[in-house]
Every structure is written in C-alpha cells, then in structure tokens.
Write a protein that binds this DNA or RNA. Sequence first.
DNA 1: ACACAATACGGAGTCACACTCCGCTTCCCC
DNA 2: GGGGAAGCGGAGTGTGACTCCGTATTGTGT
Lengths: 194, 194
Amino acid sequence: MTAGTSAPRMRADKERNRSHILEVAQEFFSEEGVSGSLDTIAKRAGVGPGTLYRHFPTREALIAALLQARYDELFDRRDVIERDEPDTARALERWLEALYDYSTAFDGLPEPLRVALFEESSPLATTCENFITATEGFLVAAQRENRAQEWVRGRDLFLGVLATAWVSGAVLADDSSAAVLQAVHKTGWMIPAT
Amino acid sequence: MTAGTSAPRMRADKERNRSHILEVAQEFFSEEGVSGSLDTIAKRAGVGPGTLYRHFPTREALIAALLQARYDELFDRRDVIERDEPDTARALERWLEALYDYSTAFDGLPEPLRVALFEESSPLATTCENFITATEGFLVAAQRENRAQEWVRGRDLFLGVLATAWVSGAVLADDSSAAVLQAVHKTGWMIPAT
DNA sequence: ACACAATACGGAGTCACACTCCGCTTCCCC
DNA sequence: GGGGAAGCGGAGTGTGACTCCGTATTGTGT
C-alpha cells in the first residue's frame, strides 16, 4: 500500500521552513503570549511574511499547529486517568486539571479557544469539540454515580476551565485567586461522596 | 467659599466636545464592543483624533468615563440590596448579579477590567477596588452567618464574576452556558441554609 | 466693543502590524 | 542537466494607535 491520503510528502524546503517556523513560534509565544506580532516571528525565523502566511493562513492555524503536539500528550493523560482512577469525581477533576494546564500553555491562549468554540470554521474548533466530548465522558460517569450535579454539561465545564485559565493569565505570581477560583468551580459542580 | 477644587470650569467648546464624544462612544461601543477603532469614534463625532486623545488619553480612560454613570447606578443597587435583603447569602448573590450586569454592559468589557485589576495606574483600577470592597462587605456578612465558604475572598468572587461575564461575551444567544456557569459559581461559594 | 493671551482643535504625519502579490529561486523527476 | 511545478522573499497596501504643531476659538481685562 501507499503512504495514505494524508501525507502527500512535502518538498524538502517546505518541510524545513514549516518546522523551523513552529520552533520559533513556540519560543516567541512562550515569551510574548499568543498575540505577539506574526511578522516578528517570520523575521526571527528568517523567512518572509508570505512564507509564514502560506504555511499558516491565520494566527489560529499557527496556534492549532503548535498545540497539536500537546494535544496528543493531553489525550495520553486522559487514558491514564481513565485507567487508574476509580473515583469518577476525582477522575473528572483530574481531567479538568489537565485541560487547565493545556489552556495555560501560552499567555492569552484562552481567548482564541473561546472564540473557536463558536466559530466552527476555526482550525481550533474541532480541537475544542474533542475536549468537550472527552469532558462529557468523565462527567456522565460521575453523574451516574451521583458525584456531579446533573444540570451541568461537558460544554459548561470546559468553558469553566477556560474562564479560570483566562483569569490566571493576568494574576500576579503571589496571588492565590486562580487556585481559589478553581476550588469554587470544583465545589460548584461536584457532589461530595456520601 | 469657591466652587471647590474638583471643577475648575471648562471652556465651552471643550465641554461640548467631551460630552459629544462620550455620546458617540457609548453608541459605538454598544454596537462594536470596547475594542472598536478609536479613530472611527473621533470621525463619527466630527473631531480630529488629537481631540479625542486629549480628552481621553487611553482607551481605558474613555471606557472609565463611560462607566461612571452606570457606576453610580450600581452603587444605588447596592444600597437597595443592603436595605431590604435580610438573607445575607441572597444579598451577596444579588450583588454579584448586579456586578455581572455591569461588566456585560459592553462587549469585551471584562478584558480591560481584568487587566485593570493588576495595573494600579489604570483609570479603571480604583473602580475595580471599590467593587471588591463592596463585595467583601456582602461576603463577610454571609460568612459570619456561615452562608458562604470562609476560604473565598471578595477579590476571588469579583474575578469569578468577570470570568463568567467573559464567557458570556461569546456565547450564542440560545446557549445556556452562561446561566449554568453562574449556577456553578454560586453553588461553589454558597453554603445552603440549614 | 476690542484686543490679546491662553486654551483647545484638526488633521496630516509616524509607527507598527496584518496580510497580499508577483518576479525569482529552488526542488524534483525524467 | 533541463524544464516545469512548487515554494520563497520582500516590497507593497491598508488599517488603527497615537503625536505634533499651525490655526481657530474662547474668555477676560480694558
């Protein structure tokens, strides 16, 4: 059989540029947050802006490509939780923590993720959908054992995580608000074990 | 005695321009959200950009001026709640609803408010501080009667409200997520009456 | 009523960033 | 190693934030 429909093999220079841009963008977004200047990324990568935009037509596309690696890692984490966490509420909690870490990967990341939730054309949209589906899985399991409020949905919890991550983005290093808000959120959806 | 230090009386044209800019900005921000183009506001108001920036040196200053009117209204609401709501938890809840309405006044308003919380130089900063103080008042009263978790602070609840408002900013009209998140938040900080 | 500071105005100008377009280069296959 | 397709660079365009200074408007003292 052939290599499959998904990888028509790239020209060498294209592939080289693409991965180099991603490296540079990774570093740049880590320093400046996801709303830093794209032209600067191109300059730092030693390519023209045209090249950057040909590879990643929008900022969201670039972010999506960067998140791809972490995406796989996140779903590994999900599998681990599913495998060795018998307590359904605790499992859901751990999954939400994982999601939180994911959406805190870069400064300002929650914003495009939130937007993507309501624009199906965004390259981040399907990513978000997957997160919601996974969340829904953990949530339903917890609800079946009466360990989560039955009036919440996966979508709501995902938005809650995003909102918490959004707040953290501006929180001072010594401020405990992010932790408190996570606790409020958790106390809100969870039903304590009997 | 003289008119006092606070109002050195403005030149007629200055006063006229200032209030006209505010009218236009009010309408424009209502349509486009608080991150719309300032130059466009100047154009619509029939003044040069210089005039707009002389009156309101930053976007935050303009927003702050616009919020001033609603600010008074909000604190009236606080007084009403304080006067005729004997249930301390319900009083806090109503106050948080008022804050939520306030921070939903314009599209995108939660963002500058959040930023202002961590930049004391912002003209919105003192506004935020007042909100937190007021929230703290309701919260402490509720905590004294064991109707609110003792590990939350006014600042946390304010941030929680902002976060909820932030989510609502992108929510589809028929989506109930905003309401659910508010409920999660409430369930999180509140302790049911015995 | 008038002149003359003082004050405020307007809009052209600068800078930074997003994003496009096309002549030229590089690659790959025969 | 030749030729056509694929990709590249960077100059160019458009928009928005924000400044600067010559000009117009205002209020006041005479």
